[in-house]
């Protein structure tokens, strides 16, 4: 299992691996929003938590169609399915690798990018915490979407349509926790809901992904 994780991380950082794709997209979104909205620091600080969460979500979505498609094209998925590694574990590991290469860099970059959007000082901790709790859910749900559409040529659009509704609860509670944190309210309830969603999907989604993938491998 660690072999698969090591391989995926190694592949992500080598040329053409797509590491930094999500991060670059996130950077572009947060840099451009102030230009689009205008230089009203009050308005910016009000929308900052939502924009940052939305940017993180879209950045995750951007790299999802590579998650399984590359392994499908070169036959790795067939061979993994016949290996001693349970498919559920393999997909869980692939989701973890996706989070480490996409979600985690976003979490680490967000304090810097918050400055661009004039995020209130008290909001930084809560924003980082909500992203840290929420982005793993984005990766495992995304793996499920990738498993559903793995055999489809140019399945990126179909996958986005399937995955976006599943992302909505994570976005609502994540952005709400960050917003409450930024405005000095108590963010505990949305944070708990967010943690619950993440814990739930981490437990269930690898099985759903493996079931979907088995059907697609036939």
């Amino acid at each position: 299992m660690t072999a698969l994780l090591r391989r995926d991380l190694k592949l992500a950082v080598r040329a053409g691996g797509g590491f930094g794709l999500g991060l670059a997209f996130f950077l572009i979104v947060t840099v451009l929003v102030p230009f689009g909205v205008g230089p009203q620091s009050e308005l910016l600080s009000r929308i900052a938590p939502g924009i940052l969460w939305l940017g993180a979500l879209l950045a995750c979505l951007l790299s999802l169609d590579r998650l399984l498609a590359l392994d499908w094209e070169d036959g790795t998925l067939d061979l993994l399915a016949t290996s001693p590694l349970p498919l559920e574990a393999a997909l869980g590991i692939k989701a973890l690798a996706h989070w480490i290469t996409t979600g985690l860099p976003l979490v680490l970059a967000v304090p810097v990018l918050g400055i661009l959007l004039n995020l209130p000082a008290q909001g930084y901790g809560w924003l980082v915490l909500s992203l840290l709790l929420g982005t793993p859910a984005l990766s495992v749900i995304g793996t499920f979407g990738a498993a559903l559409t793995v055999g489809v040529k140019r399945g990126g659009l179909l996958m986005s349509l399937l995955v976006l509704p599943l992302y909505v609860p994570t976005l609502i509670f994540g952005a709400e926790a960050a917003r409450r944190g930024a405005t000095g309210m108590d963010p505990l309830t949305p944070l708990l809901m967010l943690s619950g969603i993440t814990a739930g999907v981490v437990a269930i989604m690898p099985f759903a992904s493996a079931a979907a993938l088995r059907v697609n491998l036939r």
Binding site: L11, G17, D74, T76
Partner: peptide, 19 residues
Amino acid sequence: AHSDGLKAMLSVRENLTFW
């Protein structure tokens, strides 16, 4: 299978060690 499940960006050693 027809396709070998090799990763273009990994060396021969890394590919084989992985499997």
